[in-house]
Computed example of a mutant assay.
Amino acid sequence: MRIAAGLIAVCILLSGCGGQIPRKEWNEVDAATYTKGNQVSIRHFVKEDDLFVECIIPSVSFSGSKHARQAKIKVYVDGAYEGEYNTAAFVVKGLEKGVHTVKLEVVDKTTDADLGIRRQFYITVT
């Protein structure tokens, strides 16, 4: 009786895959940060020596919307200023191998006033 129940369980588990095992196309690190109050979502992944970042911040606009505050993102890698981006998604290219601390600061597009939205995360470039 136990053997039959065990065989049924194994058959159910094996039929769930349907013969296709999911696989990733890239060797990537994917992370998201959510803050309930601001609904801020920061996603990032590393491919080779490039860092891909996507920011979803409903309280600001990067595209010129008249209904939200205009913003840009300042990027720091290991404490050094890397650049600023006027888009919600961007790529930081040519990072050195190793572990890095990445800090993002969202500021007003025209005055550079701090908007109080900051995120910090770690990445590994291999």
Rank of each mutant, 00 (worst) to 15 (best):
V77I: 15
T101P: 00
A5S: 13
Q70I: 00
K103I: 07
A80M: 09
Q20F: 14
G94W: 05
K103W: 03
Y122Q: 15
W26Q: 12
A31K: 00
R69G: 07
A31H: 01
S61V: 02
K47L: 10
A88V: 01
V60W: 13
R2W: 12
L95H: 06
K74V: 00
Q70P: 10
R119H: 11
V102L: 06
K66Q: 10
V91L: 06
C55W: 01
A5K: 12
A88E: 13
K47R: 14
I42W: 01
L7Q: 13
F45C: 03
G94L: 01
I21D: 05
I42M: 03
R118A: 07
N27Q: 14
A71K: 07
W26T: 09
W26F: 15
A88G: 15
S41T: 04
T126G: 14
G98P: 04
C17I: 14
K97T: 07
G6W: 05
C11H: 04
V99I: 11
E54M: 03
K66S: 14
S41Q: 06
V77S: 07
R119A: 06
A89S: 15
K97S: 08
V60D: 05
G16P: 00
I123F: 01
V106E: 09
G64F: 11
C55T: 08
A80S: 14
V92Y: 04
I3E: 15
Q39F: 01
K24V: 05
V107M: 07
T124Q: 13
A9V: 14
T110A: 08
K93W: 04
I117L: 13
V125E: 08
